[in-house]
Design a protein around this nucleic acid. Structure first.
Length: 1066
RNA sequence: GGGGCGGUGGCGAAAUGGCAGACGCACCGGUCUUAAAAACCGAGGGACUUACGUCCGUGUGGGUUCGAAUCCCACCCGCCCUACCA
């Protein structure tokens, strides 16, 4: 009698043996092709959760598969070990971050081992160890040497909770909250270190060398957001504004560095930008130079350096107040989603370079100092933001681009026209709607002139109407005035005000038109179209307008074509202790001095006192802070900021090659931070797997890093990871809440609890019925917060609010020590797993119960890997049964069964089909169908067992089963392989091959369709010709029945897969 | 507001121009058992039919095709990302 399957026994046994044999050591072997399979490294928070398993297990399966296919596979693991949670633990619990982190790592290593992954632990890399982070520091020096690292004072995002600055990528959403803790960030002016990722903006937009998901490529493309447009310089009207004639730099630093260290030719232009500005000009960036004639005002960002200089004395107070408010606003939580435009006039005017119009200069917070030049030309007729601003503040709006759809509208108020208008319109074929006396007219552009004539002829004395959209005309009794310029606007408004005193409340034509809802969707558009009202450029077609205007500006020195990016340089400074030190010292004499390569690492001191405020203890550590200047030997202080942890993870794929390379030996400028032999063999990464949430952070940073390393001559390729695949997220399992029976009293509409009895959500069948009485309330808990439960007290879904005392003791079934009201579970639809919701799946418990092999297989089987979905605790049973069936098929002798048998031929076919489909699906990350095909094959083997047990064919069939199972369930496969007496280890065997000839069936069943409907099936020999198939199909009884009284027009046999008959009644 | 992904039995899902629902979960029936569990076998999209079969069915409506879950157009719903980027 063979042993029953006992994963708790065999799994640790084989894990120990594999480890002892070094089965998963990856060493260079030039006789084999290499395969570098990488999966994102965890942050050591203390627990490997089910999400890690979901990400890693299928990646491990695929790495094992590649190995059996004959590749020399590198599948390493490490820990992203610097970061805030460790430091917070230090502050809250008095544990040193290093102690906390290393203890977590130890525990997680055990958990990872229990998964049976083929990790080469000798290549483990932990980013918080000096052997690792000295190279992180080395890269800083290298980038500094290359001019890619620079320090500047800038308004940067600061998280008050994490007490540190953040990179732009780490601030999320409309509310600008911290990526880690969700606290709203605010802008702080600080001296910070930046890495010039923007130098690579264009190259980062090129994905031609990598096979990455569209989703990630799109996210990066949108993040970088390249915009082609022009810089246009506007003069400032009539004032002596600037005290000196020095070059005015809009966004400082950049020019200085450019002059000192010219950018190497392969590097792309940057978003940092400066122009020599005369005393009397402002430069803007626009993507729409073709709309210049419609620029009726300018807006500067409140932080723009010119604001101080141009503001007229009488506006100074208002401008200052607005600047203060704008600065403070980012500190206040942005509660309202309402985004009413705000701004103030500076009193100054600019000169539009195309028509010398004098246009007002405003400041407004909708213009961002961080994008473009921090100043815009406002073209309200063709930009929704400018339009909203102009309407609000009564600024003129002049259309300068024709509508492409040719739509025009006209509103005729009741009583403004004589009778007969409607008949005339009908006769002219013009569309209109009558409603409560008014006429709403829709026209196409060709009808406009005709309509204008008709309506003018019908106007009552002292009345007018207008046409908007494709054409802009004001129709008065005595004149038709085109609305085409600021002058026309004045003329029109004067007339209208004279005719109707009501109009006096409107400052501009557009404001007046905006008051009519009928017009609103026609007043502005942002499409390209033929230029109008643009002086000599009127009539220029939309497809060339932008280019022609740009050329014209360039010829006159008033602008030039420019590319702008949204991407910012990467802010890497963090005001925290637990990170890699920035190897820079500040000397009174020599200024900013890099630590010499030879002196690395700058070690993080262990003996530090953590401030309850979270302030970095490095600032107060005398031994760390004070040092000598490497240049002059004088006193100097160290940089106390550390690097963003994303710096550490930008190069970890290289750290695995030779972890802690040459620790103890001095490094040099020309060192290579890893073993070049290893690098030459293994790099780049062939397949990278992990979550998509890092699309514009880690995944962008690491590409940048590799390109910088390439330019430093350290690597010789452009992209770090050739293929990327993202897994989805496993969400919490939907479940009911507990049922509670509450005694107490009513307090108004709410019920005050005095005693609570809990019926577990697991025993729904035994719940007493819901009830709402004078002293008793009973039902399922639908929601819970600190002070109340929402209890469903009727079938219909009626909810009763039960007030509870947070610490009220409550007996919870299955909870020995007794809990509090907080432990009551509430109803949960699909949500992310979180400890507070008590819907977290603990993988260790699953492994203890089912074994790692089963958990691995279930994680592959249950979901589309790239999609994920809610956890289902029942679904795993199917996999449990399958794994047991595999065990029994191999270990139990055959018993004669009555059921159907399988011929040798069929068994062979099933085997080759399984090999083929599993091979293909593993290659393509189709993990769920891999398990499905394994189950199918196992089912076939069950049926075939009694007939074939003991035969060579049977041996081949089950050997192949185990080989196919090996990557998925490595322990059981190894155990059964040994049971069969085959040589150790199954994981060193070759992946089975399939023979296409074996897949061919003797007979094939072909469906027959008549007019697209299934009408029968015929069985023919596999080698039957088309004519034979047609004949068989037409001979089928059911087919004949359906063809009765029909004429067969056509018979199609595509690929011998199907017969399609086209017939019709005679 | 912009962009992306998706919508197929009670549930997770297969099928990417050719027999819709493979493989599982749950449910139901059977074998075994004193009984239950486990295990094994079996039915099952809906409607009509004793059955053979027929009609309807992949969010909705249209189209292309001998043939559409799959391709095209319009719409509805859900989820995710992004957000005043000039």
């Amino acid at each position: 009698m063979p042993n029953p399957y006992n994963p708790q026994e065999i799994e640790p046994k084989w894990q120990a043996r594999w480890e002892a044999n070094g089965l998963y050591r990856s060493v260079i072997d030039h006789s084999k092709p290499k395969f570098y399979a990488l999966t994102m490294l965890p942050y050591p928070s203390g627990d490997i959760h089910i999400g890690h398993w979901y990400a890693m297990a299928p990646s491990d399966v695929r790495a094992r598969f590649k190995r059996m296919q004959g590749y020399n596979v590198l599948f390493p693991m490490g820990f992203d070990a610097f970061g805030l949670p460790a430091e917070n633990a230090a502050i809250q619990r008095g544990i040193h971050p290093k102690t906390w982190t290393l203890a977590n790592i130890k525990r997680e290593q055990q958990q990872l081992r229990s998964m049976g992954m083929m990790i080469d632990w000798e290549r483990e890399a932990i980013s918080c160890l000096p052997g690792y982070y000295r190279w992180t520091e080395w890269f800083f020096l290298k980038l500094y040497e290359m001019g890619l690292a620079y320090r500047k004072k800038a308004p940067v995002d600061y998280c008050p909770n994490c007490k540190t600055t953040l990179a732009r990528e780490q601030v999320i959403g409309e509310d600008h909250i911290c990526e880690r803790c969700g606290t709203p960030v605010f802008k702080k002016d600080l001296e910070q270190w930046f890495w010039r990722i923007t130098n690579y903006a264009d190259e980062l937009l090129d994905f031609s060398k990598i096979d990455w998901p569209d989703k990630i490529r799109l996210a990066q493309t949108n993040w970088i957001q390249r915009s082609e447009g022009a810089e246009v310089t506007f003069g400032i009207s009539d004032e002596k504004l600037v005290m000196s004639n020095q070059k005015l730099v809009i966004r400082n630093e950049k020019t200085v560095i450019e002059e000192q260290e010219p950018i190497p030719p392969h590097q792309s232009p940057t978003t940092d930008y400066s122009l020599p500005i005369t005393d009397y000009s402002i430069t803007v960036f626009t993507t729409r130079p073709d709309t210049l004639w419609g620029a009726t005002f300018m807006v500067l960002s409140p932080e723009h350096p010119l604001v101080e200089r141009i503001t007229k004395p009488e506006y100074r107070e208002a401008v200052q107040a607005y600047k203060m408010q704008a600065a403070r606003q980012s500190e206040i939580e942005r509660m309202s989603t309402e985004k009413e435009k705000t701004g103030v006039f500076t009193g100054a005017y600019a000169i539009n370079p195309v028509n010398d119009a004098r246009i007002p200069i405003w400041i407004a917070d909708y213009v961002l100092i961080t994008y473009g030049t921090g100043a815009i030309m406002a073209v309200p007729a063709h930009d929704d933001r400018d339009f909203a601003f102009a309407v609000k503040f009564g600024l003129p709006i002049i259309p300068v681009i024709n509508r492409v759809d040719g739509l025009a509208k006209s509103f005729v108020m009741g009583g403004t026209t004589k009778s007969g208008l409607l008949d005339a319109l009908t006769e002219a074929g013009i569309d209109f709607i009558r409603e409560s006396g008014a006429t709403f007219v829709r026209l196409n552009v060709e009808q406009v002139d005709r309509y204008a004539g008709i309506v003018q002829g019908h106007l009552e004395p002292g009345c007018w109407t207008e046409i908007v959209g494709a054409r802009w005309l004001f129709v008065f009794e005595d004149a038709i005035i085109p609305f085409d310029s600021i002058e026309a606007e004045e003329k029109i408004m004067t007339r209208c005000k004279a005719l109707n005193p009501e109009v006096a409340k409107y400052r501009t034509v557009m404001e007046m038109l905006w008051s009519l809802p009928f017009y609103r969707d026609t007043l502005f558009h942002a499409e390209y179209g033929t230029m109008i009202n643009s002086g000599p450029f009127s009539g220029t077609p939309g497809d060339v307008a932008k280019q022609r205007v740009t050329e014209w500006l360039a010829e006159r020195g008033r602008g030039k074509a420019t590319v702008n990016y949204r991407l910012r340089d990467w802010l890497i400074s963090r005001q925290r202790y637990w990170g890699a030190p920035i190897p820079i010292v500040y000397c009174d004499k020599c200024g900013v001095v890099p630590v010499p390569y030879e002196d690395l690492p700058v070690l993080l001191p262990d003996d530090v006192d953590f401030m309850p405020t979270g302030e970095s203890p490095l600032k107060y550590h005398e031994g760390f802070l004070h040092t000598t200047c490497p240049k002059c030997g004088g006193p100097a202080t160290r940089e106390t900021d550390t690097m963003d942890t994303f710096v550490c993870s930008s190069w970890y794929q290289y750290a695995y090659l030779s972890p802690y390379y040459r620790e103890g030996e001095p490094a040099h400028s020309d060192s290579i931070p890893w073993d070049t032999e290893e690098a030459k063999y293994w790099l780049p990464v062939d397949t990278y797997t992990g979550g998509a949430e890092h699309a514009v952070m880690h995944l962008l940073y690491t590409r940048f890093f590799t390109k910088a390393l390439r330019d430093a001559g350290i690597v010789n390729f452009d992209e770090p990871m050739l293929q990327l695949r993202n897994q989805g997220t496993i969400l919490g399992e939907p479940r009911c809440g507990d049922c509670v029976e509450v005694t107490g009293t009513w307090e108004g509409a709410a019920f005050r609890a005095e005693g609570i009895t809990v019926y577990s959500f697991k025993d729904q069948a035994t719940w007493p019925p819901a009830e709402r009485g004078a002293t008793l309330v009973r039902g399922e808990v639908m929601d819970r917060d600190d002070v109340s439960l929402k209890v469903q007290t009727s079938e219909a879904g009626e909810l009763t609010v039960v007030l509870i005392d947070e610490d009220m003791p409550v007996a919870i079934p299955g909870k020995e020590k007794g809990g509090t009201a907080k432990d009551i579970l509430y109803h949960l639809d699909v949500e992310k797993m979180s400890k507070s919701k008590k819907n977290v799946v603990a993988p260790d418990e699953l492994v203890a119960q089912y074994g790692a092999d089963t958990v691995r297989a279930y994680l592959m089987f249950g979901w589309r890997w790239e999609q994920g979905g809610p956890w289902d605790s029942q679904g795993i049973e199917g996999v449990v049964r399958w794994v047991n069936r595999v065990w029994n098929i191999v270990t139990e002798p055959a018993t004669p069964t009555a059921g159907e048998t399988v011929s040798g031929r069929e068994l062979l076919r099933a085997m080759h089909f399984a090999i083929k489909s599993i091979t293909e699906d593993l290659e393509n990350f189709g993990f769920n169908t891999v398990i499905a095909r394994l189950m199918e094959y196992t089912n076939t083997l069950s049926k075939a067992k009694s007939a074939h047990y003991g035969s060579p064919l049977w041996d081949e069939a089950i050997s192949n089963l185990l080989l196919l199972v090996a990557p998925v369930a490595p322990h059981i496969a190894e155990e059964l392989w040994a049971f069969l007496g085959k040589p150790y280890s199954i994981h060193q065997q070759a992946w089975p091959a399939w023979d296409p000839a074996m897949l061919v069936e003797d007979e094939i069943e072909i469906p027959v369709q008549i007019n697209g409907k299934m009408r029968g099936r015929v069985t023919v020999p596999a080698d039957a010709g088309e004519d034979a198939i047609k004949a068989a199909a037409l001979a089928d009884a059911n087919v004949q029945r359906h063809l009765e009284g029909q004429q067969v027009l056509k018979v199609i046999v595509p690929n011998k897969k199907l017969v399609s008959i086209v017939a019709k009644g005679k």
